[in-house]
Structure formats: structure tokens, C-alpha cells
């Protein structure tokens, strides 16, 4: 893992220098302004969600009958007010917390479970592999939106059930990526050599296999975050995720949808938040993929 990838440093015409793998990745990222821009944007979105209580100009739950559906700029409401007279900007800031949480936690959990299962399936091979991968095939046989809707719909909705549903949706693809990578590494000479020298299985997995499997799995997981945020908001949009009056981007979009004839501009706001988040996640994932030199 510590070899310098040829061609990485020659971009500036100098000889390849000793940088190490992660050094090379960092070097490439530093000269990728597009990825850096979207990374900064994503960081900004995450930070403004975390510090929402400090940043929000109004109470996100404060309703007002006389201030319903006011346009952006109305008496300090920078992005206008919603159908119950609540400040849209404050609700977007607060809503980011639950939307991002509901989008990112499932990917994280699925990476651990799916990646782990894939590692085991790929390394063990044989019957274990067959059992794990055939079960995954079954869940693979559902389109992701359908599976998420089916599970959370049957469980009766709610944030927790939505996150469980999304986790189940992401386990099979992550498992497949990990299994493929592990199977490729398992039969390489250096793994055989390590085992032949009597290294315990735990160490072989940790040092020789995991290091080569982690890259593809993490890159794939990062590409799923944008899907996950869109799906999580989609579940709330269908009434299956966050329940009112809690602020959430998908839920806000659904509620404001009734008001497109009165206040079209305000209706578009929650979707713009989702779009900016998912685009930053996709661009960051693409940038990492090429920086880490992982083939899709």
C-alpha cells in the first residue's frame, strides 16, 4: 500500500516522489478545485445543520396565522414563510439535521454490516459465500426505492423505521462490492505467503485483505450517500419518515406542495437544499474515486 502510484506526480513534470498512498491521494485532491469546492459546500451544509439552533433567525415551530406563505424577504424572513407561517430558513436549517442524519446513518451502518458480510463471504468462499450472496441476491431483486418504501411502509413509517429500511436497501450492494474485492485479493500470492508464514487469520484479514477492500467499499459507500439523502427525503415526502411538525426537507416539500399556486418560489426551497446536498456528495465521491484511483 505504500508504493507511489506512477503518473501521480509526473503531472507537474517532476520525478515521482516518495509520498505513500494517502499522501498521493491528498496531493491529487489538493489540485482538484472542483472536488474541493463541493467538499467545502457539503461541509458548510453539515455545519449549518449542526449549528442550526445558533444560526436560525426564528423558532422553527413558531406558527403565525397572519404570516402564512409570505414571499422571501418579508419582515426578516429571508426565504419567506410556510403554510403555517413558520420561517422557512429556520426550518431548512433545523430540517437539515434530521434529513442528513436519516440519510447518512443508514449508509454508515450498511457499510459496516454489508462490508463485513462481504468480507466474510469473499474470504470464506464455499458454502458460507453461497448462503450470504444468495440471500443478498433476493434483496437485490427489488428496485431500491420500492424496497425502501415497502419495508418502511409495512412497518408503519417513522424516522427509525425509515432508517432501518434504508439500511436494508444498502447492505446488498455494499456486500457485493466487498465480496468482489475480497475474492480478488484472497487468491493473490502475498495473502498465501502471509498465511504460509503462520500469521493468524485475524492479522491476515486486518493487514492484507482489509487494506485492499476498504478503498472500493468506502468509495461505493460515499456514492450511496447522495442516493440515501434523496431516498430519505423521499420517504418523508410520502409521509413515511419524519412526522409533522418536525422540520425535514422532504416533509417540508410535501407540505409546501399544496401551495404552488400561492407561493411557488418558497415551495422550491426544500428541494434546492436536497439538490445541493446530493450534488456535493456525488461530486465529492467522484473526486475521491479518481484521487484514490478506484475503478468503478
Amino acid at each position: 500500500m505504500s508504493t507511489t502510484i506512477p503518473g501521480a506526480a509526473t503531472a507537474e513534470g517532476s520525478l515521482p516522489t516518495q509520498r505513500g498512498y494517502w499522501g498521493t491521494v491528498g496531493y491529487r485532491l489538493r489540485y482538484d478545485p472542483v472536488t474541493l469546492f463541493f467538499a467545502a459546500l457539503l461541509l458548510l451544509i453539515i455545519l449549518s445543520a449542526i449549528f442550526a439552533p445558533l444560526l436560525a433567525p426564528f423558532d422553527p415551530y413558531q406558527e403565525s396565522i397572519i404570516r402564512r406563505l409570505k414571499p422571501p424577504g418579508f419582515r426578516g424572513h429571508m426565504l419567506g414563510t410556510d403554510e403555517l407561517g413558520r420561517d422557512v430558513l429556520s426550518r431548512l436549517l433545523h430540517g437539515g439535521r434530521i434529513t442528513l442524519l436519516m440519510g447518512m446513518v443508514p449508509v454508515l451502518v450498511a457499510t459496516l454490516i454489508g462490508g463485513g458480510l462481504g468480507l466474510v463471504a469473499g474470504f470464506a468462499g464455499g458454502v458460507v459465500n453461497a448462503v450470504i450472496m444468495r440471500v443478498m441476491d433476493v434483496f437485490y431483486a427489488f428496485p431500491s426505492v420500492l424496497l425502501a418504501v415497502a419495508i418502511s411502509g409495512a412497518m408503519g413509517g417513522g424516522v427509525g423505521n425509515g432508517m432501518i429500511a434504508l439500511t436494508l436497501v444498502f447492505i446488498p450492494p455494499l456486500c457485493r462490492v466487498a465480496e468482489t474485492a475480497t475474492t480478488q485479493v484472497r487468491n493473490l500470492d502475498f495473502v498465501d505467503a502471509a498465511r504460509a508464514t503462520g500469521a493468524p487469520l485475524r492479522l491476515v484479514l486486518w493487514h492484507h485483505v482489509l487494506g485492499n477492500v476498504l478503498g472500493p467499499v468506502l468509495i461505493y459507500a460515499s456514492s450511496l450517500t447522495s442516493v440515501s439523502v434523496i431516498l430519505a427525503s423521499g420517504l418523508s415526502f410520502l409521509g413515511l419518515g419524519v412526522k409533522p411538525p418536525e422540520p425535514d426537507w422532504g416533509l417540508m416539500l410535501n407540505a409546501l406542495r399544496q401551495a404552488i399556486y400561492v407561493s411557488p418560489l418558497v415551495c422550491a426551497m426544500p428541494g434546492i437544499a436536497i439538490l445541493l446536498t446530493s450534488i456535493s456528495m456525488n461530486m465529492l465521491s467522484d473526486g475521491l474515486r479518481s484521487a484514490m484511483d478506484v475503478r468503478s
Binding site: 447522495s226 434523496i230 427525503s233 423521499g234 415526502f237 416539500l253 406542495r257 404552488i260 399556486y261 411557488p264 415551495c267 422550491a268 426544500p270 428541494g271 436536497i274 439538490l275 446530493s278 450534488i279 456528495m281 456525488n282 461530486m283 467522484d286
Partner: peptide, 23 residues
């Protein structure tokens, strides 16, 4: 291509309705 997979399509639908049906 990135925009296509990043847009929440339920939102795009609403925006198109706003543009082509409402306005």
C-alpha cells in the same frame, strides 16, 4: 449526468409543474 442523478425527481416534478402549469 451528475445533475441527472443528483436531482430529487419528486422535487423536479414540482418545479416543472410550477413553471409549465402554474406560470
Amino acid at each position: 449526468a451528475v445533475l441527472g442523478v443528483s436531482i430529487p425527481n419528486y422535487w423536479l416534478g414540482i418545479v416543472l409543474v410550477i413553471i409549465f402549469s402554474v406560470e
